[in-house]
Nucleic acid binder design. Structure first.
Lengths: 332, 332
DNA sequence: CTGAAAGCGCTTACAG
DNA sequence: CTGAAAGCGCTTACAG
């Protein structure tokens, strides 16, 4: 059997409560008593049973993080940042992969899994705001990402519109005029893709460049999606001199496909992405992109969630992280 | 307050034990009783409190996974596979990042964190076998990766030697004779790097090609490490016609640096890696590499750990996963 | 087939 | 400053 607080109390010749006081850094303990308890803990190799503590206190000191899949670099990097931020604040993170499926997202939101966490960070992809509100229990919930936007929910936002506009303006400033966009449908205005497309349009308008729907190519937000989309675009015969992948994976897939087809990047076609995943620095040519403030997002989300957990209620909060353009070789 | 089993028992007009029996699928319950309990559960929206269950049963149904950092694609992809395998078997995974530091690895091994898991999957990088055995508590432990090899510890192995030899043989078969190796020191024989270097040497010997220590360049196993190593190699004036990065990150960094310097890949220099991370398929040119059997590793490790947790002891097991060469453009 | 009781290892009022 | 008792929500022998 493991060593318990009772064993420590007996060894130190004090009551259970005193051991508890020492462990929880209660202020008013006679120094000699405290030392005796600490010695006993050391000697017996006592370690707190977190399960018991959780049951009694109603706090697990764990945060849930629901995302699509760690195979996706942006999510892996975000998860890493979330775990570091949580760790520093005394929390651990239980990651759950939804595989981008509504049933899994719903299960994560209301399943018994939630009894293991004090609150949830959630990157919704399949459920909408109403479904989230309906499925969510009473425990605190903070959304990440921006597919869902709703005034009723706490969330940390990416400045999608402005960041996408910054990328577009950068491409325009280099003299490009026919900017293909990969990863959205022509009419989109909501969700991550819609917001970034809107930013793209706004920047075009500001520069007096006409918007051409033929340059907007929908695709999966993965490398193969980008590669395949660029293929369709080239085959369609539409003329373009730059590609804006709505995330880095798409941009990197497109970059690859362009090079395979013998195009010169950036000489003939400039390429830019969105996310600034680690890989963007090391592609060849390296990828121009925009960093959405991933670490800041992770920290603000963790802070906000912990604030809710610790009962400091208040109005819904929706902070935005700062972004920054990263100009590299693919679009100088 | 949340709904408890007591509430369900009262609503169904049965005892606590009967509710427990229903929840745990105890076989011999009168169907009508069972139905009444199930109805009550539904009606009240009861959900088991996993913390309480853990405290009483001594089982948490969580596995710990200790790795360096999810920012590293291979670990992120492995973590994803581990989580999927664990999930299918009724376990959850609590990931902990060691940052490749001995103190963090030790903390993960013996910290109170362990009281939250039934067993640990551990990718050791800083601690050696003796330190691991000394630090590890009594809970089951299965090692992943192969930096540490020791007959006393359960672990799932990569066939580093044979897989590295396969890559080397492939490069030789294409007529390359001066194969640079990035990511090991000349004398290494142990650890991941040493084993892969040994495989490289064995393949050279089998082909009657002389081993030249000047072609072995140590570096960090990251993209920037590979880029920097290839720079040193080129500056040193040593002649080479192929590069074997001991992992894909190194190979991709080297590939990038070669292209930046205006070398043609694979015409002038062939490049190959090790790991088959997702990115290897989408680099430009795509990367020839060897897949170490990541999904199989994850599944066997999870299976072995659960086997230990469930008390099926037995002799130390050290299964090896099957590897397979992936020939792509960088070294056809 | 079902019940009443004990107890997992803590923290939390309540006393003193 | 410290103690004795209760109880968090389950599961597990032990009865019947």
């Amino acid at each position: 059997m493991a060593v318990t607080m009772n064993d420590v109390a007996r060894a130190a010749g004090v009551s259970l409560k005193t051991v508890s006081n020492v462990i929880n850094n209660y202020e008013f303990i006679r120094p000699t008593t405290k030392q005796r308890v600490l010695d006993a803990i050391d000697e017996l190799g006592y370690e707190a049973n977190l399960t018991a503590r959780s049951l009694r206190s109603g706090k697990t000191s764990m945060l849930g993080l629901v995302l699509a899949d760690l195979n996706i670099p942006y999510y892996a990097e975000l998860a890493s940042d979330v775990m570091k931020a949580a760790w520093q604040r005394g929390y651990r993170v239980l990651v759950e992969q939804s595989g981008n499926e509504a049933s899994h997202e719903r299960a994560a939101l209301q399943g018994q899994f939630r009894s293991l966490t004090d609150g949830l960070l959630f990157i919704p992809l399949a459920l909408d705001a109403d479904q989230i509100i309906e499925s969510a229990g009473k425990k605190p919930l903070v959304l990440l990402g921006e597919f869902v936007q709703d005034p009723r929910l706490d969330m940390v936002l990416i400045r999608n519109l402005d960041a996408a506009a910054a990328v577009t303006t950068h491409l325009l400033s280099a003299g490009r005029r026919r900017l293909a966009v990969l990863g959205a449908h022509d009419g989109d205005t909501t969700g991550t893709g819609g917001l970034r497309l809107t930013g793209y349009k706004a920047a075009l308008a500001a520069a007096g460049v006409e918007y051409d729907p033929a340059l907007v190519v929908p695709c999966d937000w993965r490398r193969d999606g980008g590669a395949e989309a660029i293929g369709r675009l080239l085959d369609s015969g539409v003329d373009f001199d730059a590609v804006f992948g709505l995330n880095d994976a798409v941009a990197l897939g497109a970059l690859h496909a362009l090079l395979v087809r013998g195009m010169k990047v950036p000489e003939e076609i400039a390429v830019a992405g969105f996310d600034d995943i680690d890989e963007a620095r090391f592609s060849s040519p390296s990828l121009t992109t925009v960093a959405p403030g991933r670490t800041e997002i992770a920290e603000r989300a963790v802070d906000l969630l912990i604030q809710r957990i610790e009962g400091k209620g208040g109005a819904v909060e929706q902070p935005e992280a700062a972004f920054s353009l990263r100009v590299r070789q693919s679009a100088p």
